[in-house]
Write a protein that binds this DNA or RNA. Structure first.
Lengths: 237, 237
DNA sequence: GATTAAACCTGCCCAATATCATGTTTTAAA
DNA sequence: TTTAAAACATGATATTGGGCAGGTTTAATC
């Protein structure tokens, strides 16, 4: 459990709202939403929820970055997705009233709002526009998962790593220099997204560094040659 | 395009309805639905829709079997899912009003109902219960995709092939003998689901056959030792 | 029934990548 | 500050599984 914040951010003034499924709510509805939530802070590495747990509310990331992962067959972790502020989490388990089947872990200190399960079931689920937004959101997630799946099935590790760096850039963006990825992931985490061994991820990152595609600055990754990275990823869309 | 059937099956008497998202509709609504659809037949191998096309309605499989696949990077096919009667197709592209991003191909002769796009947009999408069913449906699809993804990422070809056979059994069931899979897929199609080469799929099926896990009878596959198949798949749930 | 094409099968070789081992650097904790 | 523990790095080796080649069987077409 995260640490509950005394002064929770107001939905009405939340910057994340316009990019979230809640963009279809009017001010009154946002005020109402605000009354039925709490907000907690999570330290880097802390679990927001675990794949074995039952849902007790709808999570909405206020600030911070979260990874969604699942534990595979000999305990190996697979990162399914990386998410940022404005994204909702745990809606699937909530609607189907079943266990989460992936875990959510903070990859940096984050603050997350939790909307009451009862409010969700009594009110949100009655709102047509919002439901359509949720369908669109799940559909988008499915599309991403399927693309990831095809890459895992058909691309080699080098291509997948390049693709992963582009995905990270697309998700979290860059620092002010417009090239350094705005997130710190361990080599193991990168490997767990790419679906390879930590050693292979390290080796290939070194290669990319040597080939001047990227520059490794401590744990930060700077993209030096975006065109070459895209070419290395062998994208077709 | 499939061949339009003169005497389309009535939704009210459709056996597939209770297992589909339409189970929440009452008789009156089913009658109404029936008025806004056509039904076409598709021969084995025929495209129901192509990943490049725009949606013109919601597809609902009346009888038959369909594969959902996408074309990867050097034209290699990836089968994303296998579906049967009662399943709806193409809802994502319809709701988001964008191109399909996978193709649907009949793997045996099928008859499929197509519900008008305008009816979908004007009526279905206003039905809250139905929307919730659709959210549950997409969520289930996403869960399947994620499981497939983890397998592709972490399991070897032997394990994935065993898992694929179990997936086929779970999806299409068996013939009267309770052991022979009730579908005919080519080795290439199996490989395209498993994410391996056709040769590897053939080789491993022969091994399974030799090890008495399965028996290959022409193009039919009979599961001789389900326990061993499950063990080979290395499932953890 | 003859001909052709597609699907299926098997052996061989090799590249990609996992695994193991060992060392170094960075970070965290005492 | 010292110590311990992660995280990172790189070389050596083993294994998986892909690709090619050449075959056979099955299915489709004339």
């Amino acid at each position: 459990m995260g640490k509950i914040l005394e002064n929770k951010p107001a939905c009405l003034h939340c910057n994340a709202v316009i990019h979230s499924v809640f963009n279809v709510l009017d001010n009154e509805q946002l005020e109402d939403l605000n009354k039925h939530k709490t907000c907690s802070s999570y330290k880097k590495g802390q679990y927001v929820f675990n794949e074995l747990g039952m849902p007790n509310g709808l999570y909405c990331i206020n600030t911070g970055k979260i990874k969604l992962s699942t534990t595979g067959f000999d305990g190996k972790e697979q990162i399914l997705s990386l998410v940022k502020e404005g994204e909702i989490l745990g809606y699937r388990a909530l609607i189907a009233d079943e266990r989460y089947h992936c875990s959510a872990v903070a990859i940096e200190d984050s603050s997350i709002c939790i909307i009451d399960k009862s409010y969700f079931n009594s009110t949100i689920i009655k709102n047509n526009k919002l439901l359509i937004e949720i369908v669109k959101k799940v559909s988008g997630d499915l599309k991403l998962a399927e693309n990831h799946l095809v890459s895992l099935s058909q691309k080699n590790v080098r291509e997948r790593l390049a693709e992963a760096l582009l995905f990270i850039k697309a998700t979290y963006g860059c620092l002010e220099d417009g090239a350094t990825l705005n997130v710190t992931l361990s080599r193991e985490e990168i490997a767990d997204y790419v679906g390879t061994s930590t050693e292979s991820a390290i080796r290939l990152l070194s290669e990319f560094n040597h080939d001047k595609i990227i520059e490794l600055i401590g744990k930060k990754i700077k993209i030096l040659n975006l065109q070459l990275l895209i070419k290395t990823a062998n994208l077709n869309d």
